[in-house]
Design a protein around this nucleic acid. Structure first.
Lengths: 236, 236
DNA sequence: AAGTGGTCTAGACCACTGA
DNA sequence: CAGTGGTCTAGACCACTTG
């Protein structure tokens, strides 16, 4: 009785309202029927109706105004999402070097380091069909206490390396995407000409105390591909 | 009685569990206490506990397995989000041209057009401090029925233009981010040298029938800035 | 069979908005 | 004041997992 056509009641309500919004039958800033009205219309309880409306609210279709009611939102088309898996799976990796260095000013600023603080630098070249497609640098804090060097030797991807030093939920990543012309070092390692535009991805790994515990730079050749992001509202 | 310290019960439960996960007291794939256990522990009802757990589930901290219980998730550090507001606000815009053209093959493929289908092309140069920082092309389907040209004259940003032809929730955007070297046209319009790496942002506006109703290309100078994305779990 | 989460009900009290 | 959403209760039945 509660579940009809294999669909829970709250999903039927959610879908009905979502469809009306998609079709334009309900437009941004329109007022929805009240919880009690919907409960009567669907012959169900207020709790069930609220579950539907909270799903829609969470997905950005509607918002609630206590004392007034629910309204259709202004849609946002400026929020984009993408998945960035570190290059590596499905590719050959040429491990190039792992060194403990005294970082230059650029890295010191990026990681907000004290001077005299050493860092571990990992450099990798990613290959596809035996051609280099990307150059990847990673920088990690070097504390003499822990034998980090051995850890890195596993060629782990960046979030996993960092997660060893912080609990896995306790850090976040900031990414900066830009374009850069290949310099001599990049030309040599990526076997490209001097007129090559590279996609540069910088990543800052920040722990819960706002401390930068890892920094990475990845230079990618145009041939390899691009970052592909999505925005918008999906039907059903 | 239900609300203590100004916080609803369900928020206290949510925060408690979230903190335990952040601190590492609960690790990925750990089993949480059952709904009934939590209800007793917090001296509340199962419904309230479920509200807390569903918030955590929606935020990616835990997942449920019917018949077994709730488990701490493997954290995802590969999903990134950013806000892309079209260049324009806070900048000078040099309107350059608006034309109805027969698109070349590149645009035909991008928009999946039939040959002989004309499109409207808008070209803008965005300036900052009187220096050009970006070049922006927009392509829209041209149907002779509607006086679209007048509509575009308002210099509206892209999602708003497109939303006039589809209901505002009924389309989504795909974005491709890549790097490209300045060609002669770009060098002239952006006043840059031939060795300049530009950030190229392509946008495809897709309606609910998977039809491309708009296409855009934005070339940005390195000096202007970059795309800044975020990933990870926020405390509280 | 006992325990788990998934769905749902029929109430209740509160704070807020608007006539 | 009546109506709205926000929070919460004490039950219920179901399908699923585990012993």
């Amino acid at each position: 009785m509660t579940i009809l056509n294999g669909k829970p009641v709250y999903q039927r309500i959610t879908n009905d309202i979502k469809n009306k919004i998609h079709k334009g039958e309900m437009k941004p800033s329109d007022l929805l029927p009240s919880e009690n009205t919907l409960a009567q219309a669907y012959d169900t309880s207020r709790v069930t109706v609220r579950k539907s409306l909270q799903l829609l609210e969470h997905d950005g279709y509607i918002y609630s105004w206590p004392g007034k009611g629910y309204f259709v939102s202004q849609p946002r088309h400026d929020v984009f999402t993408f998945v960035y898996n570190e290059l590596g799976s499905m590719h050959n990796i040429d491990y190039k070097e792992i060194t403990v260095i005294m970082p230059d000013e650029k890295i010191q600023n990026a990681m907000n380091l004290l001077s005299q603080q050493q860092v571990i630098r990992l450099c990798r070249v990613i290959k596809q069909d035996n051609e280099p497609v990307a150059l990847d640098y990673k920088y990690l804090l070097y504390d003499k206490g822990t034998p980090l060097v051995e850890v890195e030797m596993r060629y782990a991807a960046f979030p996993e390396i960092v997660a060893e030093k912080a609990t896995p939920f306790a850090f976040h990543t900031r990414m900066e995407i830009s374009a850069e012309i290949a310099n001599e070092n990049l030309m040599k390692k990526l076997r490209c000409t001097e007129n090559t535009a590279l996609l540069l991805i910088k990543r800052y790994f920040i722990d819960q105390h706002d401390k930068c515990i890892g920094y990475g730079e990845t230079y990618t050749l145009p041939a390899y591909g691009c970052i592909c992001a999505q925005s918008g509202y999906e039907k059903d």
